[in-house]
Amino acid sequence: MRHPEDMTEIIPHSPQFRPAFWRGMRAFTPLVPGVVPFSMVAGIAAVQAGFTPAESIAFSLIGYAGSAQLIASQMVTSHAPTVLIVLSSLIVNLRFAMYSASLLPLFVGVPLPRRWLLAYGLTDQAYAVTMGRPVTEPSPAAYYAGAAALMWLTWQSGTAVGALVGAKIPSTWPLDFAVPLSFIALLVPVLQRRPQVFAAIVSAVVAVAAHGLPFRLNLILGAVCGVAVGQLMQRWQAKSV
């Protein structure tokens, strides 16, 4: 199974590992203020959906997927079956497969057990920081590990604080609105190209029109229609170039 070049790059005590790990961590620091409120909202939303603070913290540690955590909390509130909640988390987390594919070339030489750990730490933010690394970075895997480690620490502290204070927040505060607001902050930056914009519009229209479906199936239906239209558009653009 092993490639011959295994074992070289990401041995934690190798001289190259530490400086690259720190460089990744340092590159991640500007993202911390954006992650803190999002992670706190995830902790609060779970508690308000009926998770105990301990369950909310465990969800963050085991699931470690912001959008999926928020959707799960919402779906628990609307009494959706567990299978459907897990299916929705599969759909929102499909993007991780895309990141996983695109990071693969950076991980050549990393042994398998360590790959599992690095895969667990994969997030939108750590991915973005790693893809934006300086071209001269000699150890991208260690750089990624540093960015992912800081993301993990920030996220886990934020959700823990949110889970612990969430129970004390008066229910008259419209805090549920923090969830769509967090999604808006995530959506706006991904609307870079026309297929993405059209995918979003179609998906929004379908999700609103199908709002009457049970168990928030409108989410899945909307996303599938949106991706299909975006896909058609990409193909059409590719042909016309």
């Binding site: 991904v190 995918a199 979003a200 949106g226 991706v227």
Partner: peptide, 14 residues
């Protein structure tokens, strides 16, 4: 295309 589509479907009904 998935992030744009999923996020929009989450936000719009809310």
């Amino acid at each position: 295309l998935v992030p744009a589509a999923v996020l929009a479907a989450l936000i719009a009904p809310e």
